[in-house]
Amino acid sequence: MTPVFECSHITKHYGAKAALSDINLTLEPGRIVGLLGPNGSGKTTLIKLAAGLLTPTSGTLTICGETIGPLTKSKVSYLPDKDYLSGWMSVSQVIDLFHDFYENFDRNKAYEMLNRLQIDPGQKLKTLSKGNREKVILILTMSRSADLYLLDEPIGGVDPAARDYILQTILTNYNENGTILISTHLISDVERILDEAVFLKNGTVSIHSAVDDIRNQYQKSVDELFREVFAC
């Protein structure tokens, strides 16, 4: 099977500073992968490279065997780490925008999730709370039928009860052959839904392993291992 995401010897410099150095990473279809690392370890840079927003300084990166370009953007559903939608738009207007923009966007699915999370589609984005705006953005991202979902810090501002619900939403709504790469600091919350964990340390991959293998090998949870590996 062609990997959904494959990068070999990826290096990215911002001026003199190396954000990523010599990254090799392959992700198979149908997996949920946690991209974990302390602040400044290169998580967002890696995700932006996959989304096609940045170009690597050196190395190659493919999505479903294709080099990054307009075609791969249709296969990738990306949730940025920043709020990027216009505040004057209502939720239903943004849904229309996504529907016009992306062929693989399922409008019914979006409304169904809004309904279950009790968000009024008529509300303007700027009047929503931070947590509710994050929920809307996640709904928009997950309502596309993509091969690769890139979620950069998706649930930071969401309360714990809604977080559980959102993780359920991710589990029940992602396309079964799709792969989700999720960057987060809330490891203990997402650990149980992950297949694999990737630890980024100073721009390099320090661990890439199945979650249950980590638990087996180290006799501790991924959250505990993270706290140990990245202890200050």
């Binding site: 559980d164 589990l171 149980r192 839904i193 297949d195 979650v211």
Partner: peptide
């Protein structure tokens, strides 16, 4: 598998 995974809130592969 999907229903059990959803009930336990775990990854279906697990």
């Amino acid at each position: 598998v999907r229903d059990l995974a959803s009930e336990a809130a775990v990854n279906p592969n697990t």
